[in-house]
């Protein structure tokens, strides 16, 4: 900084604000274009690959064969069931906890945000191993059925779901709402049902979609615990029929991207409208510390 001030006015080439950050247009679009191509090519190539028949003909047989495989539907159904279970458990855990923290112990907000990132420290393969060693003796209804997957997915999706819901609670004036409700004589159930939750709809939706998308794509835990969920089925298909596997991947990618895109757009608009004008680097870094990981 000091050095900058000592060099004042030696060079008048770039007057005006923000000019030092200006990059050449060619450079800018070159970079973005190359990166964009890197991201689009695999999708286009997958689409082409999945429609490719013998002798370069176009065919949709990969898709029709896929849809007529009973395992396609049964594994998809299993993953959806696990996903719904995970979403319900996640919400049952998150709603009371986050609302409680914001109302009663706001000092612990940051602490719990950090705690919610803990699952990132322990790779899911290691969690799986730990589940096997420590829960061996649990009744078969938990360890022998996909229930254990839902129980663990709640944990593994926590870094994403917690943050989303927490920032939604942060965005409303929970304390005033609750005080108002209480002064009108509402009990806790009524407060949650008619005051708190309706105000948190987008946050609930966001957390639910993130947790659900996580469940539909999770492979490591499911395959290591020997449950044939949708992604595990996908790998099995990949070992016998490449074009079907690619077709399936394409479907899976599009189906996870769409809901994600929806919530990102919803949240992006809300953030953009509520964003403060002056952002100091310090606060941004603090935000980044948490958002980045999610």
């Amino acid at each position: 900084m000091v050095a900058v001030t000592t060099n004042v006015g030696r060079d008048g080439k770039e007057p005006g604000a923000a000019n030092v950050l200006k990059l050449g247009k060619a450079f800018r679009y070159g970079i973005l274009g190359l990166v964009g191509i890197f991201f689009i090519i695999p999708i286009l190539a997958s689409a082409r690959f999945s429609f490719l028949g013998n002798n370069n003909t176009i065919t949709i047989s990969a898709y029709t064969q896929l849809f007529s495989t009973p395992q396609f539907w049964s594994t998809l159904f299993l993953s959806v069931k696990i996903g719904l279970g995970t979403v319900l458990l996640t919400l049952a855990l998150l709603i009371p906890t986050v609302v409680w923290i914001h109302l009663r112990v706001p000092k612990l907000k940051r602490v719990f945000e950090s705690i919610s990132l803990l699952p990132l420290v322990i790779p899911s393969v290691v969690v799986t191993l730990g589940v096997i060693t420590s829960f061996k003796s649990l009744p078969n209804i938990i360890m022998g059925t996909p229930v254990i997957l839902a129980l663990e997915y709640v944990i593994l999706a926590l870094p994403y779901s917690y943050r989303t819901f927490d920032s939604a609670v942060q965005a409303i004036d929970l304390k005033t709402l609750v005080d108002a409700g209480q002064s009108l004589g509402a009990g806790w159930i009524k407060l949650l049902r008619f005051v708190v939750l309706p105000n948190l709809r987008s946050g609930l939706l966001g957390a639910a979609i993130l947790a659900f998308a996580f469940c539909l794509g999770e492979f490591a835990v499911a395959s290591l615990l020997s449950f044939t969920t949708f992604p595990v089925f996908l790998v099995q298909v990949g070992q016998v029929a490449a074009s079907q596997a690619v077709a399936l991947s394409l479907i899976a990618l599009l189906f996870t991207w769409m809901p994600l895109a929806v919530i990102i757009i919803i949240f992006g608009q809300r953030n953009a409208s509520s964003k403060k004008k002056t952002v100091s680097l310090a606060t941004t870094i603090e935000q980044e510390e948490t958002t980045g990981i999610a």
Binding site: P42, F49, F219, A245, V246, S249, L253, T256
Partner: peptide
């Protein structure tokens, strides 16, 4: 990430 990503790169 995960499996679909791997397969789309195999196709590419």
């Amino acid at each position: 990430g995960g499996v679909p990503l791997a397969f789309s790169f195999i196709a590419t």
